Simulated scan of single mutants.
Amino acid sequence: MNSSENEPLPQLMLSTTSPTNISNNLSDIVVTNNTDFIPLSERPETYFVPILFFVIFVVGTLGNGTLVWIFMKHRTMRNVPNTYILSLAIADLLVIVSSVPFTAVIYIVDHWPWGEMMCRISETAKDISVGVSIFTLTALSGDRFFAIVDPLKKFHTSGGGRKATRITLCIALSIWALAILCATPAAMGSHIKDIFDPDTNINFSVCYPFPEDWLDGDYAKTMVMAKFLVLYVIPLTIIAIFYMNMANHLIISTRNVPGEAQGTQRQIKARKKVAITVLIFVLAFAICFLPFHMYLLFFYFYPNFNEVYNAFWNYFRIVSFCLFYLHSCSNPVALYWVSGAFRKHFNR
């Protein structure tokens, strides 16, 4: 028996009124006789999830698309922080266009109807988008740290300059390359998994990113833990260190700035505002992705998952799934409320 015997289905799980007993056989996930299968028409998620995904698609496409258009059209918006924000918007558009419309449908038809190629594209786009988002937020946090701690260096001035532009573009492209590298396992391993329930004589097919025979059955656990560390814990820890040191420096520097140095005070205030904007982006990422990682860790590493899985965990899974995609439209909304320049251009 493989160690990855209990496998979560990120884009589909049987909805039940009592705990789901998942078979230990990797190729045979069933709902046992002590569990009632709920038809699609009687599941609340059948109605609210597609509606929510439609809202995510519209808001995300409009917000991120407008952000990209504003950056390309208005030269004054092309500075170091906004270059990173543009990269975030492109990553969000990627997952919105290539994943959101397709994954929403599984709550209507109860299986993956798009074929293996679209399965690979969808899973790969998700991993690329997550990687670009968290690595870019880390770079943004580092940029804000040096802009506040060492503001005399030209690279960190808000206007940028040719050298700053070249360095920022190189960092942004490197982030995309690293994110694509992190998404390579999903591109290679994602496949259509067929599941048969003999009690109801129903066949399910799901888009599943973890081949069961890789790493002697330990591949799923390895990838879940690796993603949790590389795409969540480690970057957020680095960001937290940046912000704690940034806050300490701001407290000290504010006390030492003479009252007559109004220009310096204005610069500090402007840089603090940008740093707060980046912090809002980071908090949105942390909040939207924490439940998703918690669910996967619980599913794969809790020894008696079958016995404790109940309605709470079923809806926790659905909420975490929705929050995962909700993040793709959160940045433009946050930017609209905290950035007067973006709000002005957007309203136009």
Rank of each mutant, 00 (worst) to 15 (best):
N203R: 15
A177Y: 06
D216P: 05
V100E: 00
S174V: 00
V130Y: 03
D127G: 05
I195G: 06
K153G: 03
C207K: 09
V100T: 12
S98N: 13
S98T: 15
D92P: 03
A89E: 11
S190I: 04
V132Y: 03
A186C: 05
P185E: 02
F135M: 14
N203W: 15
K221W: 09
T136M: 06
A139G: 02
V97C: 09
L181Q: 03
C207T: 08
W112L: 04
T138Y: 04
A220V: 04
L94H: 01
D197F: 04
E212R: 13
R162L: 12
Y208S: 14
W114P: 07
E212M: 04
P113C: 07
I106A: 05
Y219F: 15
A89W: 01
G161I: 03
W112F: 08
I96K: 07
A89S: 15
D197V: 04
D197T: 11
D92A: 13
S141H: 03
H111V: 03
S99Q: 15
R144Y: 07
I180S: 08
T157P: 01
V132H: 06
S205V: 06
D150M: 13
I128L: 08
D199Y: 07
S141R: 11
D216F: 08
A104Y: 05
G161N: 11
I175W: 03
T136I: 06
F210H: 09
A186R: 05
K193Y: 11
T103W: 15
R166N: 09
R120D: 06
T136Q: 05
A164M: 00
V206W: 13
A177D: 03
L94M: 12
A139S: 03
S190Y: 06
I90G: 02
D194G: 09
V109M: 11
G115W: 10
E123H: 12
V132S: 02
E212G: 10
D127F: 02
L215R: 11
R166W: 12
T165A: 11
T103C: 13
A177H: 00
W114S: 08
G115R: 10
A104S: 13
Y107V: 01
K221L: 12
A89N: 04
K221I: 03
M118K: 10
I148G: 00
I175G: 00
